[in-house]
């Protein structure tokens, strides 16, 4: 278990009478990209919210390196190396691009960060590297709210990249991107995976899923229906009909 960075066991969440997530198991392995796939309302984002502590689970557990993180606050889970993006991006809109990334690297809740000048220079370098890798260097001083859509998407990735987090949870990171930006996104994710980052992504674009995912977990109505290699899952006509909302 300890060689699996993130493991989900029997996760359950109900909102009133609605079973949003039902008994979901999931293992995210190092250097492996897992895609959560399923129709709208399948519970994919809820799984992310349960992993990151944004909402408490009714039952089940989330293990980081084999240790339970149940009951921890989102910021405590983030500090254990789990970074996430949001469907609606949630950038720090009135801050500059550079400050968006820098803010993601400063978790100490005091008037200043520990570590002195050396740590400050290391953070500044991490910011510049992240901006360079996401192609945002020229926009570093622009406000996040003034960026074009694709640039905003890449800024949400730059924030994650700079943190050096070892587990990335990406919620529809490529939706709405033009083909050129999509290709840049795919290259960025592949590079991160080659550096040992564990990635779990929610994506509706099956081309992106095919390009990036090593494994797919298929969710529907809160339950995990199947998990396996992309060709196995995407080749299953029953799952595909569920995905496209065909009557069952």
């Amino acid at each position: 278990m300890a060689d699996i960075p993130l493991s989900v066991r029997g996760l359950d969440k109900h909102f009133g009478g609605l079973a949003a997530v039902q008994n979901v198991d999931l293992d995210l392995r190092p250097g492996v990209t897992t895609a959560l796939v399923g129709p709208n309302g399948a519970g994919k984002t809820t799984v992310f919210n349960l992993i990151t502590g944004n909402i408490p689970a009714d039952a089940g557990d989330v293990l980081l390196d084999g240790a339970s993180v149940r009951g921890l606050q989102p910021y405590q889970i983030a500090r254990r190396g789990v970074a996430r993006s949001f469907q609606d991006l949630r950038l720090f809109g009135r801050m500059s691009v550079r400050d968006n990334v820098l803010a993601a690297l400063e978790p100490a809740p005091w008037l200043w960060q520990p570590g002195g000048g050396g740590a400050r220079r290391a953070r500044a370098k991490a910011v510049e590297t992240a901006l360079e890798r996401t192609g945002l260097t020229a926009q570093a001083d622009a406000r996040a709210m003034d960026l074009a859509y694709a640039e905003r998407k890449f800024l949400s990735l730059a924030r994650i990249l700079a943190t050096g987090a070892r587990i990335w949870l990406l919620d529809e990171p490529a939706s709405g991107l033009d083909p050129n930006s999509r290709a840049r996104f795919v290259a960025l994710v592949r590079q991160a995976v080659s550096e040992g980052v564990t990635i779990c992504l929610i994506e509706h674009n099956l081309d992106i899923v095919t390009e990036l995912a090593d494994r797919i977990a298929f969710l529907d109505r809160g339950a995990k229906l199947a998990e396996g290699e992309p060709q196995e899952i995407l080749g299953d006509p029953q799952l595909i009909s569920i995905y496209f909302g065909e009557p069952r």
Binding site: N54, R84, M95, N100, A104, P107
Partner: peptide, 14 residues
Amino acid sequence: MAIRDSESAAEAFG
């Protein structure tokens, strides 16, 4: 300012 702009994202970054 990060909290002001998005509290949940600020939490997600520790």
